[in-house]
Write a protein that binds this DNA or RNA. Structure first.
Lengths: 173, 173
DNA sequence: GCGCTTTTGTTATATTATAACAATCCTTGC
DNA sequence: GCAAGGATTGTTATAATATAACAAAAGCGC
């Protein structure tokens, strides 16, 4: 099994030779294993929603997922999507990106971790970090005030290295 | 003028002798100065919205602000509130708290800084940090991937030191 | 005052999310 | 197999959050 930093996982922007088909397959496989281990039911619908979230590395909005489901014949309504997402988020297979009202596939499910995202404001791509220095800097800041952390939300908006040279132009010049 | 860490500013949870009237007055005064310096117009409406945001240290939701305005005779609709908030956020007088869809008064307006929030899931109170170690840990993480930061969103959910001992009980036991 | 810009009012609507209850499916024990 | 019970999904309705578009009014420079 591939470990963190493997080329299979989209772990940086503009990754050379990123094989997205394999990337998605790996995410799905990890999800299957994790659910099996926990006795959680990765139903057909939930798996399909997870696949849709993973269609690209741009976080997916709930109603875009809904459209995708409907487009392929699923009889879906908003609760269909939100319930599937609730399950996936609860099991750490997907993170909610608060600043986008969107959902991103998690690259390290199973490990306890906060979602730390770098989000490109130009191409919309998001990369998940899992940086202990960030986590512990926040933990120390909270500790100084006697605050007990339950969940950390870190979302950084900016320009990815691919878009940076093209900045100021419209998307896709 | 009071500096950071002053008792005037609500900078930690359960602060002894927190004089909220003075806290709000100071925030309003800072806002007035900052706008004057920039030639920005802190109109009656914008000032009133800022006051409402500062009514408590619990981030205010847009429609609660709307209700407050209407309750005092203002002829207000959603755009009224959102436009005022847009102005206040643009000038750094208010931060949007993404994970709550709410708005919190900024304690250090004028200084370039990201909103770093510790949010108590029990009492709803929020405290803003301005921690360079957190900021720079994130900056280093982003730099390693060649990512250029535009805006950092850090929102930490948990239990404040006041609520911590009362945890598991309902709000206000 | 007059013209221009900024701000606010007003109406309508888009986007995101959940409540509530019915129908179906899946498992488990018999 | 099959009934009971819990989990999942379907369905309808609605809540909560946010913006578009254009008109009216207010503030500012002359």
């Amino acid at each position: 099994m591939k470990t963190r930093g493997s080329p299979i996982i989209f772990s940086r922007f503009g990754e050379d030779g990123h094989d997205h088909r394999a990337c998605v397959a790996a995410a799905l496989a990890r999800a299957g294993e994790l659910c099996a281990r926990r006795g959680a039911r990765l139903t057909k619908l939930r798996r399909r929603v997870l696949e849709i979230v993973w269609r690209s590395h741009e976080p997916a909005r709930a109603y875009a997922i809904l459209d995708a489901l409907q487009g392929e014949g699923y009889c879906a309504a908003p609760p269909t999507v939100y319930r599937a997402l609730e399950f996936l988020v609860a099991h750490g297979l997907v993170h909610r990106v608060e600043s986008l009202n969107a959902y991103a596939g998690c690259t390290q499910p199973g490990e306890a971790h906060a979602g730390q995202f770098l989000i490109c404001g130009r191409c919309g791509g998001a990369v998940e970090l899992d940086d202990d220095r960030i986590r512990s800097a926040i933990a120390r800041g909270a500790e100084r005030l006697g605050f007990e952390i339950e969940r950390q939300t870190i979302e950084v908006l900016g320009l990815c290295p691919v878009c940076r040279p093209k900045a100021d132009g419209p998307e896709g010049p």
